[in-house]
Computed example of a mutant assay.
Amino acid sequence: MVTMFLMHDHPGWEITADNPAPVRAVDSRNGSAALLNASARPEVFRLPAGACAALPPPLAAALRDLGPVARFRTPSLWDAIATAIIRQVIRAGQARLQHQRLRTAHGPAVATERGPVHALPSPQTILEMTDDDFAALGMTFKARPLRNAAAAYLDHSPKWAELPPGRLVEELQTVPRIGPWTAGAATADFTHDWSLYPYGDLAVRTWAATAAPDHPWPADEHGFAAHWRALTGEHVGVLTLFTLALGAHHAGAPAPSPPPRS
């Protein structure tokens, strides 16, 4: 029997000791929320033959040992953008906490047996929130980029929905306070094109080095990204996703958030 690792890296997943089965509410595009759980169908990723050939052997073995990796694509572009903004600068645990606070305080809910599960607030709700609302959540620093993104999403989402992933990354960067990291992370989350994920970030560097500590990984982001691209070639997307999955698998939680950037 082939085992499969199901990623719950998105900070919208709710997992508690009393209710260990992860559930997540997502925007249903009409101001309400829909439930995403194990009964839905995630996308399943497998390593192509020869994909790991150029990787350091310990990392290659660790990625192969994962077996197939399953992940739910975020069905709402707004959710993907807002989540990437929340993840800017801060560590994964803090991002998860802020995400949960924002959802619970201002997002639409789905009733479940375990109680209400909240999705992120809509762009309209974000624009209606006051400075005091953001301060009460400990998210003053996130107010401006979230408002910028909400206004841009309301203006441009029909156009964005028609763009191929690479162009979407470019268009998102026209929004103030959305830079290459945020645009790439949001687009990968929304489209599952992981070749667009900012693979030089701390998460990929951390788990690659954890699996293959004796390999001479470049310490800086740009040097690592160039080296990673050379090692992974045409398989950069799936190998990046598997490396993130490796971190989530061993940590029992999402991999580290990126260093300060937008």
Results as ranks from 00 to 15, higher is better:
119 A>I: 03
12 G>L: 03
44 V>T: 15
11 P>H: 02
115 G>Y: 11
127 L>P: 12
57 P>G: 13
193 D>E: 15
73 R>L: 13
258 P>H: 02
138 G>P: 10
125 T>P: 11
144 R>G: 07
112 T>L: 00
57 P>S: 07
35 L>W: 15
65 D>C: 08
80 A>Q: 11
241 L>G: 10
157 S>N: 07
71 R>W: 02
169 V>T: 15
177 R>H: 08
124 Q>W: 10
168 L>N: 07
210 T>V: 12
87 R>V: 05
160 W>V: 00
70 A>D: 09
81 I>S: 12
215 H>L: 06
176 P>S: 11
217 W>S: 07
53 A>G: 15
227 H>R: 03
178 I>P: 00
194 W>Q: 07
186 A>S: 15
29 R>L: 01
63 L>E: 09
119 A>R: 02
16 T>I: 01
71 R>V: 00
206 T>N: 05
166 G>W: 07
57 P>A: 14
67 G>Y: 11
115 G>Q: 01
158 P>W: 04
184 G>Q: 07
38 A>G: 15
180 P>E: 09
207 W>V: 12
45 F>K: 02
33 A>M: 08
217 W>V: 07
221 E>C: 08
97 L>H: 13
201 D>L: 04
23 V>E: 08
74 T>E: 12
187 T>E: 12
104 T>P: 08
54 A>V: 02
60 A>P: 08
142 K>R: 13
60 A>Y: 13
218 P>F: 13
38 A>S: 11
69 V>Q: 12
99 H>Y: 08
28 S>P: 01
120 L>C: 01
225 A>F: 10
157 S>R: 11
137 L>G: 06
42 P>W: 01
108 P>M: 04
127 L>S: 07
214 D>H: 07
45 F>S: 14
143 A>G: 00
133 D>W: 11
137 L>I: 04
66 L>E: 03
222 H>R: 10
228 W>C: 04
158 P>A: 00
126 I>Q: 06
103 R>I: 03
236 V>N: 11
229 R>M: 13
100 Q>I: 05
85 I>V: 14
62 A>F: 06
229 R>L: 11
237 G>P: 05
198 P>S: 03
129 M>I: 04
242 F>I: 10
115 G>C: 06
191 T>R: 14
231 L>H: 04
138 G>M: 05
193 D>F: 06
112 T>F: 14
206 T>D: 10
67 G>Q: 05
73 R>D: 01
154 L>Q: 13
105 A>H: 09
255 A>V: 15
145 P>L: 02
194 W>N: 04
128 E>F: 12
211 A>E: 07
1 M>F: 15
87 R>F: 03
48 P>R: 03
156 H>L: 06
221 E>D: 10
179 G>A: 14
140 T>M: 09
47 L>K: 06
80 A>E: 01
99 H>T: 00
126 I>P: 09
197 Y>V: 00
52 C>L: 00
2 V>Q: 15
89 V>A: 04
241 L>N: 05
128 E>G: 02
140 T>R: 12
242 F>R: 12
257 S>H: 00
235 H>L: 02
105 A>G: 14
136 A>T: 03
102 L>N: 15
187 T>L: 12
213 P>R: 12
173 Q>Y: 12
107 G>L: 11
136 A>Y: 08
134 F>Y: 05
151 A>V: 11
